[in-house]
Amino acid sequence: MAKKKTITESDIIGFYMDHVLTYGEQPKSIYAFAKTNNFEEQKFYEHFSSFETLEQCVFKVFFDNAHEVLEKSEDYLTFDSRNKLLSFYYTFFEILTANRSYVVHVLDDCKNQLKTIKVLARLKQRFINYIEHLNISKFDIKQEQLDNIQNKSITETAWLQLLVTMKFWLDDTSSGFEKTDLFIEKSVKASFDFIDTTSFKGLIDLGKFLYKEKMHAN
């Protein structure tokens, strides 16, 4: 059978995810993977250097798909930064849920150390860039060095918040992951309340929610 002449990044990602979900592990080699899916091994290297870089790209694609959906929404473009971030969360986690079997397979063994997992590296790059362009209101600091520290703090805190939400979603056993939706609503509200320093009600509300969930789990 003639090899496929045209093979896209999306094709390779689809083949890879299907293999992982079918066999529960990475393909034995890139050569075997290409042969099984009837394309030249060289085509793989035109897009990825290894299975590890491919896995990083999967989560980047999840982000890109969510962002693309949002950018096509006229309503989203009129939202303030809080509601844009909230919309992103809901859309992103819808995509994760649609691919939950794969995401759980990749992340479940290391969900307690998501912050350091390399597979999320390209997602982090995309997400931090997204946060930097949300124009989140900050303290008015008349000093460049302190302002840079504040910007770094906001992006790193936002990334940590996303990781915590992913961990919550991985552990969520509620119908339709409704508890994750509630967690998203409360955590985003709390984070903006903290930045704005106009209200701490959101922080208190989130604390009560997490305490209730912990008590229920115990």
Rank of each mutant, 00 (worst) to 15 (best):
L170W: 15
F93R: 00
I12V: 13
A66W: 02
L123P: 00
D196T: 11
H105P: 11
T97H: 06
N65P: 11
F48A: 05
F93W: 13
L170F: 15
F177V: 00
L206R: 02
V69G: 09
N112R: 13
A2C: 03
T78L: 06
K142V: 13
S174H: 01
Q150D: 02
N65H: 14
T8F: 03
V58R: 07
E94M: 00
F183M: 14
K186E: 00
I12M: 11
T6F: 13
D147T: 15
M17R: 08
K167C: 04
I184W: 06
A2S: 07
K35Y: 04
I204Y: 00
E94N: 00
I13S: 08
D172W: 02
T6M: 14
A190T: 02
N151K: 08
I136M: 10
S49L: 02
H105Q: 12
K115Q: 11
T53D: 12
G176L: 02
L96N: 08
M1C: 15
F88I: 02
E46C: 05
S137I: 06
K111E: 15
V119K: 05
D205M: 01
E46T: 04
K152C: 02
E9V: 05
L120G: 02
T197L: 06
K60M: 15
E144S: 14
M17W: 07
E9S: 12
I117D: 07
I154S: 05
K4F: 12
S191E: 14
E46L: 04
D18G: 03
S49R: 02
E156K: 13
D205P: 00
N218Y: 14
V69M: 06
H216L: 15
I141D: 09
F59R: 00
